[in-house]
Nucleic acid binder design. Structure first.
Lengths: 144, 144
DNA sequence: ATTAATTCGGACAAATTTGTCCTTTATTAT
DNA sequence: ATAATAAAGGACAAATTTGTCCGAATTAAT
């Protein structure tokens, strides 16, 4: 569904949000450890998210990553997915046809339409804030 | 969603089915041309499908690939997907967690559940036959 | 000012996926 | 039997994704 990079990105963002809600800024090291991802690779993903203004990064001692309450409410899952994987999840034909459309559908076009559409809706309406809520109450997990 | 190999595999199988319905066995060359895929790579995918008894292959002059009417009705999309991509589409956690489950859910688990489930249902109920029907009437397309 | 902590960014490396080429094997037709 | 045709299969190559390493830049604390 999503690339590894994207999975890490979503997990990292949710974790950062959870900590930000408690007033804590978190380091790369802590993030990679908490979401169980390779540190250096995760750094790249975080850079990308920061450049896309999904999270904020602060250099230097006591630096790290954070996300404002306002942003975690405003930013939806779809923003992260687009930033990392592009829009292929939404637009790519199920069978990989370049020109697939209502007017020129591949054989599975109408079968996939509803599923793709509900995925899109879900991604576009689910906020980071919402996803971070369960975390501190131990309802949702980001690793084993 | 699916790998390239899987996309080619589905397109190829649907094409073969469409031709088999008209009593024609088709060559690798014809398949690759008709579904607009790289020939040698498509050959590998077809081998895999044949080994999984999704299609039948015949060597020698006037050989090629075909699929019986009975099989195209019996075989569902899910068989092709499993054969080529494995079952990750069904089982892999949306965020890539090894241990995600109802009891130990990732933050998007319940958001994804319905979508994943309807995808599974769709794949498990859609037959090759069904998908090949539109083809010869020009309703569905396998390339531009 | 110096040092230490931390992200940034570039270059590289490994793994996986995608794709090609060529020889072998099976089958048909002559 | 022989030749021609087509898939099978192995080895290799290219592209992409995933992952690592290390020095540079920035910032905070002393």
């Amino acid at each position: 569904m999503f690339s590894r990079a994207c999975e890490y990105g979503i997990r990292a963002t949710i974790y950062i949000a959870g900590e930000s809600l408690e007033g804590r800024r978190v380091s790369l090291k802590a993030i990679a450890s908490e979401i169980d991802s390779p540190e250096a690779f995760t750094a790249k993903v975080l850079q990308l998210l920061a450049r896309n203004e999904i999270i904020e990064s602060v250099k230097g001692p006591s630096g790290g990553f954070e996300i404002s309450r306002k942003n975690m409410e405003k930013i939806k899952l779809s923003r992260i997915v687009s930033a990392i994987d592009g829009d292929s999840v939404y637009t790519r034909c199920g069978l990989g046809l370049k020109t697939c459309s209502e007017k020129h559908p591949c054989p599975v076009h109408f079968k996939f339409m509803d599923i793709r559409e509900s995925l899109r809706t879900m991604l576009e309406t689910t906020s980071i804030y919402e996803l971070s809520l369960g975390l501190n109450e131990g309802v949702g997990f980001l690793k084993k």
